[in-house]
Every structure is written in C-alpha cells, then in structure tokens.
Nucleic acid binder design. Structure first.
Lengths: 177, 177
DNA sequence: TTTGCCATGTAATTCGTTACATGATTAG
DNA sequence: CTAATCATGTAACGAATTACATGGCAAA
C-alpha cells in the first residue's frame, strides 16, 4: 500500500485530455491506463470533491452533472508531481509464486495445472496488448509516444512472464523423476 | 487489495520448514520470498493467534516464546490452498508509468531522469537476484527447484523491465525534435 | 413504461503498514 | 551494566474495494 494516495494525479492527468464528469473519468482511466492503474467510484468521488475544495479542479457549469475541468493551480500541481520522483513500489504480493515456493507440499500435477491456466490468461492479455498497441500506433496525438511507452511496458512484462512460465514448467518436469 | 488475506498461507507454508516463532517467521518470509511477499508484525501476530485458535498451528511448548509448529489440520489447509487456483492479481498501480503516460505535461528532461534513476534501481535489484540465484543453485534441498522458479521470476521481470526502460528512453529521445 | 446507461455519492469492510509499548535474553 | 537482539502484541491510521442507495434521462 502506498503511503499517500496518488489517485488525485490520475484525475488531474486525465483532465488534461479535456473536461470530464467523475463517471467519465473513471471510464477513461480504467480504459486507457487500466493495465496499471484502476480507480473505483468510492475512491474517485471523494478525491474529486477534495480537489474541488483545493481549487485544483472546477465544474464547467452549475449543475451536479457538469463535467470538471483543470484549473491553473491543478495543472501546476500535476506538473510538480510529474517533476518529482515516484515512490518506489513495494513488491507486489503474488499468490501463484507463493504456491510455487511451497510447491513441495502440493499434490503432483497441480502446479503444472496452475501454470497452464496462468499461461492461458497471459496469452489473452498478450492479444489485448497487441490490439492496444496497434490502436496507439495508429494515433496521431502529441501523447502518442507516452502512451506507446506504457503499452510497451505491459507487453514487455507479459512476454517475460510467458517465457518464465515455460521455463518453470520445464523445471517442474525435470524434477519429477 | 486481495479479497481475502493470504497471510495465513505464507505462515503455514513457512512452518513446513520447521517450527518457528512469529519473529523468526517474519524474518524468514521477508528474507526468502521478500521479493514478492512481505509481512509486517501487525499482520503476522494476529494471524498467528487466529491460526492457533483454529488449530492449524500450535506452540511446541508452554511459554510465550516457544516456536509454533504446523498441526495436521494446518498441513491439510495448506495443501487445500495449494491445490486451488490463485486469485488473479489486480493490476498493480505503477506511479512511474502514470507519470510517463501524462508525460506531455512534464518539463523536458525530467522523464529521462526518472527513467535513469529507475534503471539504476533495477540494476541493483538485478545483482541481488543474481546472488540469490547462485545461493539457490548451490542448495541441495528438495525445495530447490521451487525456490529457483520464484527467483527466476524476479530475474525475468527485472530483465524485461530493463529492456523496456532502454526502449522507453530511446522513444523519448526520438520524440524531442 | 421499463430497461439501461449516465451520474453521484456513502457506508461497511478489509487489508495492511507504521508506530508504539513492553519485556526477556544475550553479548560486550 | 548496558546495549542489541529476540519476541509479542496493540492502536492508529490510510488506502481501496464492494455494495448499496438514489435519481435523471433516453431509447425501445
């Protein structure tokens, strides 16, 4: 868990793409950076209210469903965060790895099964990334390079994990006799 | 955040290596699987107490500082978990990627700086993994293969991330003019 | 007119970390 | 004797998800 929430920067950042309602904001976030950053309403709305209080964000109109836009202060806060160093992420808990680590206790075969299912999930993720990459490459936006970089990250990790998965399966096989 | 805590399985699993106190347990966990699973005392002790209540774990002696050992029920619970499918992990939030995604708003040069520092951290992680791998390879334990698999996972991810980092830097350079 | 989507919010709950407090034992 | 390490626990806090509740509006 992060020491302090970064939800605000996801919001401020997305609003550089134009005014949006909270609802839309969440769709955009989970749609575009969903592979490494997701937001829930329970997190989003309180954050949005706080940003409004702090004057980093304002409604473009007067009704409750008018979209929000970035204020100058908001853009400033975003740039300050961008210039700062990201908190190094604490190692993520990986349940599959934990199972493998204690694999000696597992009935024979189940680990291979786990790896096979994991492989299939990875393959699916791989195709989603491939499609997303094509989409980004077809873009003509000043953001294109930045978006491409984040997609390539996902691809790099999935490919590495696929290779590892195959390696792990082979190691398990060798170990059987 | 995971739906239900898996701390208990880290504990039960570690106790297959022999009786241990809570203190020791935490050292062992953070030492051996620390690259993908860490525990804090605030999490560990209550979990241990609960496991004792459920009869999955018992003190080897009568004093407060006697180590815990696995009961038959505990080993059974561990095996049941091992046979089941791991919860698929929700995509981890990655602050650096978020910064890169909104990179258009960043002052020129800072992103390259972020990537360079990230590179250096990765290099350090890489050497730690290399050392750990040698350690595991030198082992002669029935667990060796399983341990190796988890170390290789770390290596695969770090290597992939290093390659991506270089790629990202290059993309940013191209984008400058 | 009713189904579904857009939109906003809150409450309950869970997970987890950090900080704090305490005491026993051991090494110097 | 005293500092470090081993050992146990709790309290405070924060992040985040899930579920729930509400209402407007548009299309079928």
């Amino acid at each position: 868990m992060s020491r302090t929430s970064k939800t605000r920067y996801a919001v401020l950042g997305m609003l550089t793409h134009g005014p949006m309602t909270g609802y839309r904001l969440r769709e955009e976030i989970n749609g575009s950076v969903g592979h490494f950053w997701r937001e829930s309403f329970g997190q989003l709305y309180p954050t949005l209210a706080q940003l409004e209080d702090e004057g980093l964000v304002r409604r473009t109109g007067t009704t409750r469903s008018d979209p929000f836009e970035l204020t100058d202060a908001g853009r400033g806060a975003l740039r300050t965060w961008l210039a700062g160093e990201a908190e190094s992420l604490t190692p993520e808990r990986n349940e599959l790895l934990l199972q493998l680590f204690f694999g000696r206790e597992a009935p024979p075969g189940v680990l291979q099964g786990h790896l096979r299912r994991h492989w299939e999930a990875l393959e699916q993720a791989r195709s989603r990334y491939a499609a997303l990459e094509q989409l980004v490459l077809a873009q003509d936006s000043p953001d294109r390079t930045y978006w491409l970089i984040t997609v390539r990250h996902g691809i790099a990790l999935v490919d590495a994990t696929l290779a590892w998965n195959a390696d792990a399966s082979a190691l398990l096989e060798e170990d059987l006799p």
